[in-house]
Amino acid sequence: MTLDLPTAWAFLLALAVFLYVALDGFDLGVGILFPFARGARERDQMVAAIAPVWDGNETWLVLGGGGLLAAFPLAYSVIMPAFYLPVGVMLTALIFRGVAFEFRHHGRGRGKKFWTAAFFGGSLTAALAQGAILGGFIQGVEVADGAFAGGQFDWASPFTLLVMASLAIGYALLGATWLVFKLEGPLLARARLWSRRLAVAAAGAMACVSVATLAVDPIVTARWGVSLNRVDWGQFLRVAPLPLAAAACAVAIVVRAPTARGPLPYALAVGLFAAGYGGLAVSLWPYIVPFALTPHQAAAADNALALLLAGAVVLLPLILSYTAYSYWLFRAKVNPDGADH
């Protein structure tokens, strides 16, 4: 059997995007929860829970962009112009969020207030912009002659609004459960409460998005076996484990969060995202640009894919192991003084 390079790269990129969502998702989520902190001390404690690792987490986004350019140049050159505005908004939001880590500590008076607000605003806006890209992506992108052929606001729709809100809620859930894992003191108790509420909200939002996605394209309807007038039970039962797994994760967070102090709620939140991600894959496969381009149509030349794959096979395990080392090094809980022990 010969290795199908475009398919292999589609899986690798899907993995990179998922790692980005699971990892930077909790960073952005902590930023989204910033206004709920009571005072400077609690905000510092929250930032301390992510400061040593956020940069590595955001690098998965760079791999997503760079990898898409390298492995699927055609998909890259269609998706980026299609989402020109939300991509630009996301990038500027990430600028504010990223520099705020350092600038918050150097600013005085109003400067400090500004960068604290920028950390929250940047995190929330980045989440919403990613939701807009995701929503527009699921709706499908208009392509003619291998180039983007739609309008600049094609992505904007009620469906996209729903996805934007859902992703922000989902990131907030990742953030809250991460705080349960990393914090001690009064904030831990509140992070548990946030986790429970957000788990319910995220599960609800995901259900809404799932139902709305069925209306996007007949391909999706056929995959899930569910349409307005008819349910194909045979088909639906085959994919039903995904929504069931999502529901189970949400319920488990609600049940376990009140007493949790370890990584379990965060792992369950990642499980919730994984189920949603799997659901998306069921809906959209085999398209890398929904309903227009498949990985094979969008792929770079075989020698480019082979060269990259050789590097990825060696380097990704290495990257994952030193990333794991860095998380292990900063594994300690952060107490209310901002110091961990």
């Binding site: 791999l63 962009g65 492995a71 050159s77 980026m80 030349a301 990259l308 590097g311 380097l315």
Partner: peptide, 28 residues
């Protein structure tokens, strides 16, 4: 890493196979 696509998509589509891997290796 996003601007090559947002503003220079024809460039990206045409030379992606040649210099894309170099940028991929930069990230990795």
């Amino acid at each position: 890493s996003y601007q090559f696509g947002t503003n220079w998509s024809v460039f990206s589509a045409h030379v992606g196979s040649v210099i894309g891997p170099l940028m991929g290796y930069e990230v990795l």
